[in-house]
Amino acid sequence: MRGLVVDFGGVLAGPGSDRAGLTAIIGALRGVGVRSAILSNDPGGPAGADLRGLGDGVLVDEVVLSGDVGMAKPDPRIYRLTADRLGLAAADCVFVDDLAVNVRGAAASGMVGVHHVDPETTATELRILFDLGQGVRA
């Protein structure tokens, strides 16, 4: 796996999230060359500026907002677009979302899907998938 794509609301923000812990994992993965993106069904436009501000290496390499690209999860095309923006094939990416329907959409695009149910489980899954040591905590 060479890419990590995460949802924002429900994974990095909101109930059931641990932004600090998952941010540490994203940072550790980026440190070993894993490309990263946020993929959100955010309406985009001017209101999406804060989310877009997490791209370009601030937190992740790329930010893809549904409202900006005219398609939304779980459409498999948006996952492939995100992988393309990372310079990767969908099959080289792991996608994390709190909604099972979106995880299924990612799998339909060729990505490995992780259904986020709690930060500890997600962190464990990511450590396994990316062969990341236990030293990075979520």
Rank of each mutant, 00 (worst) to 15 (best):
A90R: 00
R137C: 01
L86F: 11
E125I: 01
G87P: 12
L86I: 06
V6L: 15
D97M: 07
G3Y: 11
G44H: 04
T121W: 11
V63H: 10
G48E: 08
G10K: 07
G113W: 08
D61H: 14
V32Q: 15
V69H: 14
T23I: 06
P119L: 04
V117T: 15
I38D: 02
V101M: 13
L81C: 10
D75H: 13
G3F: 11
L88V: 04
L81P: 07
D118R: 08
A83S: 12
D68C: 09
L86T: 07
P43C: 05
L86K: 04
T23E: 15
I128P: 00
G27F: 12
E120S: 11
R19P: 13
P46I: 03
D84G: 13
L39G: 04
L129D: 06
L126V: 04
A24D: 14
V58Q: 10
A24C: 12
V5G: 01
K73P: 01
S109W: 03
R35W: 02
L126R: 01
M71N: 00
P46D: 14
G70Q: 09
T82C: 13
I25K: 00
R104P: 00
L39R: 02
V94D: 05
V103Q: 06
A108K: 05
L22W: 11
N102V: 02
T23L: 08
A89I: 00
T82R: 03
G44C: 02
G133T: 03
L39K: 02
A123I: 05
A83T: 08
A13N: 14
R52I: 02
A49G: 06
P119N: 03
G55S: 08
V6R: 06
R19C: 13
I128A: 15
V69M: 10
E120Q: 12
L65D: 07
V136L: 08
R30M: 11
V114K: 02
T23P: 02
R2N: 15
G21W: 13
V34D: 07
A49K: 10
A49P: 00
P46C: 03
D18N: 14
V32S: 15
D118N: 13
G14S: 14
H115K: 01
C93P: 09
P43T: 09
R2Q: 15
D92S: 11
N41K: 05
K73W: 08
G87E: 12
A106V: 05
E125L: 06
D42Y: 05
V58Y: 10
R77I: 03
C93D: 12
M71G: 00
I128Y: 14
E120K: 04
A106T: 04
G45Q: 01
D92N: 07
I78K: 06
V60A: 06
D98Q: 02
V112S: 12
A100V: 09
Q134A: 15
D68N: 08
G113C: 07
I78N: 07
V94T: 10
Y79D: 00
F95E: 05
A72T: 10
R77H: 12
R30Q: 11
D61G: 14
H115C: 02
P74H: 11
D75S: 13
V117G: 12
G21S: 13
L4F: 13
S66D: 09
